[in-house]
Design a protein around this nucleic acid. Sequence first.
DNA 1: AATGGAAAAATCGTAGACGATTTGTGATGT
DNA 2: ACATCACAAATCGTCTACGATTTTTCCATT
Lengths: 260, 260
Amino acid sequence: MEQSVDMSDGATSVSNSGRRRVRKAEAGPDLGGAAVASGGDVEQHIYQTVFDSVLNQRLTPGTKLPEPALCELFGVSRAVIRKVLQRLEHERIVELRPNKGAVIAAPTPEETRQIFEARRALEVSIVEIAARRHTAKDLADLRKLLAHEHEVTHNLYQPAWAACAREFHLRIAAVAGNPILTNYLTELMTRCSLIVALYQPTGNAACEHAEHGRIVDYMEKGDVASARAEMGRHLRALEDNISLDRGSSTQSLAQMLNLG
Amino acid sequence: MEQSVDMSDGATSVSNSGRRRVRKAEAGPDLGGAAVASGGDVEQHIYQTVFDSVLNQRLTPGTKLPEPALCELFGVSRAVIRKVLQRLEHERIVELRPNKGAVIAAPTPEETRQIFEARRALEVSIVEIAARRHTAKDLADLRKLLAHEHEVTHNLYQPAWAACAREFHLRIAAVAGNPILTNYLTELMTRCSLIVALYQPTGNAACEHAEHGRIVDYMEKGDVASARAEMGRHLRALEDNISLDRGSSTQSLAQMLNLG
DNA sequence: AATGGAAAAATCGTAGACGATTTGTGATGT
DNA sequence: ACATCACAAATCGTCTACGATTTTTCCATT
């Protein structure tokens, strides 16, 4: 039995990067969340829906994404679906196996190690730049995020405070002010979501929250080196939560089975 | 008058990542370099041809890439061309303006700054990992590259020793052993080629070569911090070579004109 | 009953065609 | 003579159809 595509509840904010063109009213069921508006960014809408579904773990690694199914789900032709799938493939969110269908990517243990190493390499540099460049408003915004994070610490629904944590890391990247690095980080964090969905680590929200707080503290003090070091420790702790469960191959193997 | 697509001489090595499927003999002129082999990786061949043409500055920023022209150049349908163009767009090599055609990307001064900052952030971490992980063979290979680099130092043809320099940086990334970071670096170095083609800096090959040598020296000594620092200086020197010419907006403006 | 193979169904890759948007050119009016 | 508007050419976005490959199912055989 195979998993099926669902992705209801498109509860996202992301503003549509302005495009125009009004072609025709929708012909399909028009599901996914927000109303299909322009017609040209239907592509963006579909991408965002799949993307968010992955982040919220409604689409888990190994799930098949048949083109005909997506076509009638979104009421579009295969051309646009294939375009979206190719984009998702380039971002390593889906894997396009020639003549064998598209599936949500399932990072291997080795890939997991590489992803976390790359994220550490990137994010320590990002936090260093952010620590040098931050303004008073930046710190205030980060503190506000930390406060919100504290509120949802005890939320048992994992994707809820996972999104909160992502927002924190993304905000630091925004403070650094380099959209290229932000894009790379976004890509790596998305793949981290896949890893979490695959290996289901026992994340400690309170612990993560404390580490986030220390990072901001160091930034505020202007202690660049310590901010770097703390971010490195934080990311290594995240990876360790995965690595521990990686040894027990039961989950990994089970996932491998319903993949093929 | 617009620039036209040419891209003769596909002098590259890149091995075809094995795909099979033999459909039919080519119907078009079959130009571009190597013979169209399998049929399924025609896509890879076209991508590689454009990619190499950008690196060798045969395709310069602002050059238009009309789909029909590429179709008959490679003897394929628009579908595969659009696929390649979308991939190139994702890597920021070409810009796809809706209903207005594809052009080779022309990084703005602000983007140039971001690209170099991102590359520094990435590559200092890469050289740090490489400095911790290198084997004796890695060092020998790097020394061999340095020797070859020394030979072509006085080659007046810029793309020649530019390719040599790229290979050196890529090899260090290979030593680090993280394909994700290597991919990001490749992307950024490609965009640096665009920048060089746009702003035509007065690069000092001998100076670069000396800096490369110092980096390997520090790696051999196990002096991780100094290797990091030297790589940072090296990349900053590269950027400064651009920045100087950036002030004189004559070149930039001239390029801007033949863009639209 | 289990296994091997063949046919059918499903899915994917590519090509060709049509409609929409943009751009360049030429004629016309001021 | 210059600006403006309309028309034509070019280019792009999308849809539909066909061929190839893969997977699944079913039946015959051991």
